[in-house]
Design a protein around this nucleic acid. Sequence first.
DNA 1: TGCTTGACAGAAG
DNA 2: CCTTCTGCCAAGC
Length: 120
Amino acid sequence: MKEQTPFAEEFKERIYHLVRMIPRGKVATYGQLAFLAGFPRHARMVGRVLKETPRSLRLPCHRVVNASGRCVPGWHDQPERLRREHAAFRPDGNVDLKRSLWNTYDECRTATPETENNGI
DNA sequence: TGCTTGACAGAAG
DNA sequence: CCTTCTGCCAAGC
């Protein structure tokens, strides 16, 4: 059992909680999660936490990509999982953040007819 | 105690 | 689109 600093303990729990909230077919960025967790400058720590997340927790961590929409280098199952839940991809293989980024802003307000026109 | 490492972000060229 | 650079900061050595 590895000792955890108070920071790591608190930060981890917050990140786990947030990742569990990402809707199917949507993705969040490391910086976004860091911001929502209350540590806007800890984007890199988010990556560290997720990398060491036990599979047993069954977190949908495949829904976390970098600010460019790029998936984790080497984790070839991630893009497949995202496609399976209908996340939008761009020709270059990155997630289309314009359409699939988890929007934590609009979710806090009543639907606006203005933005009802689906893309494309 | 200090230097190196990242599943990062963002700007610049 | 890519590369390079700076800023970031806990963890590891």
